[in-house]
């Protein structure tokens, strides 16, 4: 019963996709919308095929993924550490509060040109941008997660003889993990945004660079191909986080909510 229900939903989803492509194709073929602006789905698919067939895409994809993964890891670790530290130290948290709020409110993509000046046009400037984006998402969630730790569980652990480090290891961190993971989903996206925007603002390689280049040639099909490729890999990275999450949070009856942070 459930199975057939799921199958039907899947079929409907595929149908929607086909209708969308068909509509896109029809609109451009009959000249209702200009190919110049919206491209042509078949040419986009052809472009993607060509990129993979010739192998030229792998270098660019590799660069973008490398930037994403490094920014994701460094930003998350930093967010985790600072989040734990500030959540457990009220004085530090009070001191840092206005600065963190300021940095968070700042539209940080605007840092891209500055990072390009500081770190050059290579991968470093993209990683730096990614880190500033990832950091805040993870930081706010860890901070919130630690603040939400059940005071009874905490008191119980103290009665059972937990030292400060043991409290951190066996209560604060596990109890904040659900918050951390819900933030990691958003963080992967942020790392990707950082890499692509960075490339788009100035670089010599990466999928963002490909898109920039296609745009320069008014090659709308190339732009779409790049966007689709990015979407696809963002989904894959998100799925990887999901798998790790499912393994580590198997004890959990329900999902935790996320607090977001703007890019």
């Amino acid at each position: 019963m459930f199975r057939s229900q799921n199958t039907r939903i899947l079929l409907a989803q595929i149908l929607i996709f086909i209708l969308f492509i068909a509509g896109w194709k029809a609109l451009t073929t009959f000249g209702i919308m200009s190919k110049f602006f919206v491209g042509d789905p078949f040419i986009v698919a052809g472009r993607l095929y060509e990129w993979f067939a010739t192998g030229m895409i792998f270098k660019h994809l590799g660069v973008t993924l490398f930037e994403t993964v490094v920014a994701f890891i460094l930003g998350s670790v930093l967010g985790l550490l600072v989040g734990l530290w500030l959540a457990l130290s009220p004085t530090a948290s009070q001191l840092a509060s206005p600065y963190l709020k300021g940095f968070n409110a700042m539209p940080r993509v605007i840092l891209a040109p500055i990072f390009a000046v500081w770190f050059g046009l290579g991968v470093t400037s993209k990683i730096a941008l990614g880190i500033t984006l990832v950091f805040f998402v993870v930081f706010f969630n860890v901070y919130q997660g630690v603040r939400e730790v059940s005071p009874v569980t905490l008191a119980n652990a103290r009665m059972l003889g937990a030292s400060r480090t043991q409290l951190l290891r066996s209560v604060y961190i596990p109890s904040a993990t659900s918050w951390v993971f819900s933030s990691l989903h958003a963080a992967v996206g942020m790392a990707f945004v950082g890499a692509v925007i960075g490339e788009y603002m100035g670089s010599a390689a990466g999928v963002g660079y490909l898109i920039l280049e296609a745009e320069g040639l008014f090659d709308i099909n190339g732009v779409f191909a790049g966007v689709i490729l990015l979407t696809f890999f963002a989904l894959i990275l998100d799925a990887i986080v999901g798998v790790v999450e499912a393994r580590l949070l198997h004890w959990q009856p329900r999902e935790a909510a996320t607090v977001g942070a703007p890019a």
């Binding site: 009874v152 569980t153 119980n156 059972l160 003889g161 209560v171 596990p174 109890s175 009856p253």
Partner: peptide, 23 residues
């Protein structure tokens, strides 16, 4: 405690041995 104080991320046995583990 009056309220539930177990660690939900630990199994029943893991919860029971928390104290000895800390020690």
């Amino acid at each position: 405690f009056q309220a539930d104080a177990l660690m939900p991320w630990r199994t029943a046995l893991e919860n029971v041995v928390v104290g000895p583990e800390f020690a």
